[in-house]
């Protein structure tokens, strides 16, 4: 009997594996324990490592776009609203979940809001301090979060013009970290002021602390 297929199986012909050598899948492993000296309390150590497949499906054009150095957004053919990050169906209730169309977005943006991080998740600690901005890419109705490079943490400004800068093609992995924001070419930082001095004072120990990380 021929098994009935309900969806086309994509034929995956391009596959890249850039898993670091020290990342290994072991599944669930009990790897140790500790017991208090009064023998009343025990802690056990469980290690869990698992490879996940994130199926991007209909959102794939955005991530394939990243590999090609493009910011892909979507637009509703009915109301014209445009988004990055993309939405595959319109958010406007009057459009009745209209399917959207893909468009390439300009690599120009503006800072909507920003922060300077001196602490982060385990995998980002060594990159601190990080300037995170929510930038509105020209034409988009939404802001997208990404890092701002090429500027001192204390020099970021609201509404400053930005450009989207991609990593060299060979370094891209199809993730949001394939690009970052940089100040637009015409932008110049404003002179130091009280707030900038305050941020500088808060950030300086972070540079020192990061040097101590292994």
């Amino acid at each position: 009997m021929v098994k009935k297929k309900f969806a086309e199986t994509p034929n995956f012909t391009i596959r890249k594996d850039f898993r670091p050598l020290d990342v290994k899948e072991k599944g669930l492993v009990f790897v140790g324990y500790e017991i208090s000296d009064d023998k009343k309390t025990m802690n056990q150590f469980l290690h869990y490592d698992q490879l996940y497949t994130i199926r991007h499906g209909w959102n794939s054009p955005f991530f394939i776009g990243l590999l090609e150095g493009k910011i892909m957004g979507t637009r509703c053919p009915k109301c014209g609203d445009t988004w990055v990050p993309p939405r595959t169906h319109c958010w406007n209730l009057d459009c009745n979940l209209q399917r959207t169309e893909w468009i390439e977005m300009p690599k120009k943006a503006k800072v909507h809001t920003w922060t300077v991080a001196g602490w982060s998740g385990r995998s980002s600690l060594k990159r601190l301090p990080i300037i995170l901005v929510y930038g509105v890419i020209e034409g988009s109705k939404t802001a997208i979060a990404n890092e701002l490079h090429g500027v001192n943490p204390w020099d970021v400004e609201f509404n400053m013009p930005l450009k989207v800068v991609f990593k060299p093609k060979e370094q891209r992995i199809g993730a949001i970290t394939d690009w970052h924001f940089e100040p637009a070419d015409e932008w110049e930082p404003s002179p130091m002021n009280k707030e900038k001095e305050r941020i500088k004072k808060l950030v300086e120990p972070v540079y020192e602390w990061v040097k101590t990380l292994k």
Binding site: L132, N146, A175, I176
Partner: peptide, 9 residues
């Protein structure tokens, strides 16, 4: 997909 790797927390 869009935010974890660029803010982290």
């Amino acid at each position: 997909r869009y935010e974890l790797m660029v803010g982290g927390i």
